[in-house]
Design a binder for these strands. Structure first.
Length: 426
RNA sequence: GGAGAGGUGGGAGAGUGGCUUAAUCCACUGGUUUGCUAAACCAGCGUACCUUUAACGGGUACCGGGGGUUCGAAUCCCCCCCUCUCCGCCA
């Protein structure tokens, strides 16, 4: 969330950011409530100050055995009045917070203004040596066909077990998936300076509010009503919330964590759209990177996190491109975001496999994660970042399709072979 | 699922309605003393919010969370959450 004081002092700036992000502008409504709130606070606090000092007096008088009944009667009135104001204040607070939690993070100044994904900017492209977008004569099988032919993916049985969008990996497919996860984790741990975590996959509501999925994306998240728990849509949620309500040691920043999790998304209302095979699923696997950093470093760290994800794709020799998202395509909590898309020859298009974002202090404020600034001795909110490093589902599409042979077999990328202990899927 | 014990500042820990402005100890910060370090002594030490305080400031709230009783609540009452111990069940 944004700092209420900041909104109060920069209403036009905030409105512009909200509009550029295609979110509803409720700033005026918010500021009106803020005005009412502050007026009520002043009133109630004056009454409380009086009440406190008189009550102290009552204690003394009683000890001296003096009559206090008239003072107590007077205080009773003040006490009741205070309760009245507090009730009103409470209602206003609730309304105000409702709006405040719905106000998105503002786009960073380096983010291009735009309405839709069409206005995202391609920053760079990386292609393995000898790669060509031109298709040769042999027919390219898509990942669903390959999965079926090689008996490594079974979307029909996945649907039988759970419903559509719940992939079932079999045999070498399952092994390849596991190899991919292990390879990515090991790379981040050994080469990129991350500490591995294996977080809970069910979280409470406060965690989802903290990272910003709730309230806006609530419909996209599964909910286990019986226990009040939510299956995580991304490991970002549990990992970022590790330090909720904590004060971190400035010297230990930046803290870099990487973790595997399965991710669960309802994808409500998106049926029929690009839903073949892995393209849109309710459950997928992902290795996530999360950073807690000092504010002055967060934009450098954003570049780092993108590089860390890119290194995985370079090692796997999979063609990819980096997009800088325009303001309108940015997620609710993000100030700046790069998407990484990998190439699918069968679909003949780019597929989003990673998203790397700087949230600045938006999540830090919601989760109340701070550090003590040694220089100013003040508490400051940390900046948080995260990036997929990467999601295996879309990556698997590109991997299977790019590594298929003319006979419809799949060669295992070199860096994964020591994890799979086989070199080809046939 | 059943029974019990707990949750107090950065940490330990006292506090059963008004001498509490949350004691005390540790940690931390500054100072005095001092070949150096240590010790000792002195002082300081929270967060959030409100407030045109010129400035030093003033005020309110906060003892797991939320309600309630009362002139006055860390303390009494109700609901919830979490942790621990034992029993049951269980991969």
């Amino acid at each position: 969330m944004l700092d209420l004081k900041f909104i109060r002092e920069n209403p036009e700036l905030v409105k512009r950011g909200i509009i550029n992000k295609n979110e509803p502008d409720r700033v005026d409504e918010l500021l009106e409530l803020d005005k009412q709130r502050r007026s009520l606070i002043t009133q109630t606090e004056e009454l409380k100050a009086k009440k406190n000092s008189v009550s102290k007096e009552v204690g003394k008088l009683k000890k001296e055995g003096k009559d206090t009944s008239s003072i107590i009667a007077e205080m009773k009135i003040i006490s009741d009045k205070t309760k009245e104001i507090d009730t009103e204040l409470h209602q206003i607070d609730e309304k105000l917070n409702d709006i405040l939690y719905y106000i998105p993070n503002l786009p960073h100044e380096s983010v291009p203004v735009g309405k839709t994904e069409e206005e995202n900017v391609e920053v760079r492209q990386w292609l393995p040596e000898g790669f060509s977008f031109e298709q040769n004569d042999t027919e390219i099988l898509d990942h669903v066909e390959l999965g079926k032919k090689l008996n490594i993916l079974d979307f029909e049985r996945g649907a039988k077990i759970s419903g559509s969008g719940f992939p079932l990996y079999i045999g070498k497919g399952a092994t390849l998936e596991r190899a991919l996860i292990n390879f990515m984790l090991d790379t981040h741990i050994r080469n990129h300076g991350y500490v591995e975590v294996l977080p809970p996959f069910l979280v409470n509501r406060a965690s989802l509010i903290g990272t910003g999925q709730i309230p806006k994306l609530e419909d996209d998240i599964y909910f286990i009503e019986k226990d009040g728990l939510y299956p995580i849509p991304t490991a970002e949620v549990p990992i970022t919330n590790m330090y909720r309500d904590e004060i971190l040691d400035e010297e230990k920043l930046p803290l870099n964590y990487t973790g595997f999790s399965s991710c669960f998304r309802r994808e409500a209302g998106s049926y029929g759209k690009e839903s073949k095979g892995f393209l849109r699923v309710h459950q997928f696997n992902k290795v996530e990177m999360v950073k807690f950093v000092k504010p002055e470093n967060s934009y450098d760290e954003l570049e780092n996190i993108v590089n860390d994800a890119e290194n995985i794709l370079k090692a796997l020799q999979i063609p990819y491109r980096i997009l800088l998202l325009c303001s309108g395509d940015l997620s609710f909590s993000a100030a700046k975001c790069y998407d990484i898309e990998t190439w699918s020859p069968a679909e003949n298009k780019w597929l989003e496999a990673s998203s790397c974002s700087n949230f600045e202090d938006f999540q830090g404020r919601r989760t109340n994660i701070r550090f003590r600034n040694k220089k100013t001795k003040k508490l400051n909110f940390v900046h948080t970042l995260n990036g997929s490093g990467l999601a295996t589902s879309r990556l698997m599409v590109s991997l299977l399709e790019n590594y298929q042979t003319p006979e419809g077999k799949v060669i295992v990328p070199k860096v994964l072979q020591k994890y799979t202990s086989f070199e080809i899927i046939d």
